[in-house]
C-alpha cells in the first residue's frame, strides 16, 4: 500500500458562541471526530449539504483555521504541532482554491502580483525571472502574457478561477484543496475548469481534495468520496460504491435526490423529510436518526461506530454490520 499523503485523525473543530446577557454559552460542532486518509495522486471528493462541515474540514486540513482537537498528518508530520516558521515553510506543499474567485482574488492586485505573490514569499525569484515564471503558469492554465497587467474586474468568472488555480500551483504543491471551485460558474465554463484541473493533475501528479455540494461534479472528478452530515463523515468509499452500493441511508437519499439530466432515467427516489438540524444542538446518538427512515431505537442513544464493509468502504451506521 502506498504511504498516505494526508491523514486526519479525530479532527474536531468546535466554535464557541459566547453567552451574552440573555443567552448561555453554546458550542457549534462544525467538525466532529473526523478520520480520513488521502493517498498521493488521487482526487478525494467531499460531499454534503450546506453546514455539514465540508469547508471547515478543508480549512482545518491546511490549518487555515485552528482545529480544536485532533491531528493532521502531512507525509507523516503533524501539522498542528509545527511552530509558525516551520508551518510557513511547509505551506508551499499545500494550497487551496476557493469557491468565489471574485472574493478570493484581491481586486487591487494585477495578475502578475496575484500569481507572483506566493513566489515572492517562498522563493528568490524577482523581476524578469518572476514575470517569466508567472507567464509560464498562466499559459499552463490557458491564459497568456497579455493578461499579466490586468486586474480581476477585467476577467470573467471562469478566467478568474484559472488565475486562482495558477496562483495555487505557483509553488508546485503536492496537495490542493479545491473548495467548490466551479459552483459560481455556468455549466459550459464549469466543464472547461474541470477539464483543466484533470489535465493539471495528470501533468503535475497533484493530489486533490475536492469539496462540493454537487454530486454529479464530485462523481465526475473523484476516485474516492467521503459523505458528510452535521460535522461528521458518515461514509467513505470509492466513487462507484458511493453511487451504486451506498450503505448509509443518508448517502442513499443524497444520491437519489440529485436530479439526473435525462428524462427517461426514472428511479425510486428516497425523499428525506424535514431538514438538517442545527449544529448548535445536534441530536444525540446518530445525528441523522431524526430523518432516517430505517432508524432503530439504538440510533437515538448511541453514536454508531465505523464499520469496514470491505475494501476500505467505511460506514458509520447501526444498520450496517461487518
Amino acid at each position: 500500500m502506498t504511504e498516505p499523503l494526508v491523514q486526519a485523525r479525530q479532527l474536531t473543530k468546535h466554535y464557541v458562541l459566547r453567552g451574552g446577557l440573555f443567552s448561555r454559552r453554546q458550542v457549534i460542532r462544525a467538525l466532529h471526530w473526523v478520520d480520513l486518509t488521502v493517498y498521493p495522486g488521487e482526487t478525494f471528493g467531499v460531499v454534503g449539504e450546506s453546514g455539514c462541515g465540508k469547508t471547515t474540514l478543508g480549512r482545518c486540513l491546511l490549518r487555515l483555521v485552528e482545529p480544536t482537537f485532533g491531528e493532521v498528518l502531512f507525509r507523516g508530520e503533524d501539522l498542528l504541532r509545527l511552530d509558525r516558521e516551520t508551518l510557513r515553510q511547509r505551506r508551499r506543499y499545500f494550497q487551496m482554491v476557493f469557491q468565489n474567485p471574485y472574493l478570493s482574488l484581491d481586486p487591487r492586485m494585477n495578475v502578475l502580483h496575484l500569481v507572483g505573490e506566493p513566489l515572492v514569499t517562498h522563493t528568490d525569484l524577482r523581476g524578469q525571472a518572476l514575470a517569466d515564471r508567472v507567464v509560464m503558469l498562466l499559459e499552463r492554465v490557458g491564459l497568456s502574457a497579455d493578461h499579466l497587467y490586468r486586474y480581476p474586474h477585467e476577467f470573467s468568472g471562469g478566467q478568474l478561477q484559472r488565475i486562482a488555480i495558477a496562483r495555487a500551483l505557483a509553488l508546485n504543491p503536492l496537495f490542493v484543496v479545491l473548495d467548490e471551485p466551479t459552483s459560481a460558474l455556468d455549466v459550459s465554463v464549469q466543464a472547461q475548469i474541470l477539464n483543466l484541473l484533470k489535465e493539471l493533475q495528470a501533468e503535475l501528479g497533484l493530489t486533490y481534495l475536492f469539496i462540493s455540494h454537487d454530486l454529479s461534479v464530485v462523481q465526475h472528478v473523484s476516485d474516492r468520496i467521503a459523505v458528510m452530515y452535521l460535522g461528521r463523515v458518515v461514509e467513505v468509499s470509492t466513487t462507484e460504491r458511493i453511487f451504486y452500493d451506498a450503505r448509509h441511508p443518508y448517502t442513499q437519499a443524497l444520491v437519489s435526490s440529485t436530479p439526473i439530466p435525462d428524462p427517461q432515467a426514472r428511479r425510486a427516489r428516497v425523499i428525506l423529510q424535514g431538514s438538517v438540524p442545527s449544529p448548535l444542538n445536534p441530536p444525540p446518538g446518530c445525528s441523522f436518526h431524526p430523518r432516517c427512515a430505517q432508524a432503530l431505537p439504538l440510533c437515538a442513544t448511541e453514536e454508531p461506530r465505523w464499520v469496514d464493509v470491505g475494501d476500505g468502504h467505511l460506514v458509520a451506521c447501526h444498520r450496517v454490520s461487518g
Binding site: 455549466v187 466543464a191 489535465e199 454529479s216 462523481q219 439530466p261
Partner: peptide
C-alpha cells in the same frame, strides 16, 4: 434531451458531468 437540435443546446447537454462520461474530458 433525446433529439436535441440546436448546437447551443447540444453544447449545454454535453457539458454536464455524467456517470457515463467519467474519466473522459467534458465537452466545453
Amino acid at each position: 434531451f433525446q433529439a436535441v437540435k440546436h448546437p447551443y443546446t447540444q453544447g449545454l447537454l454535453a457539458a454536464i458531468p455524467r456517470p457515463s462520461r467519467r474519466g473522459n474530458p467534458l465537452q466545453a
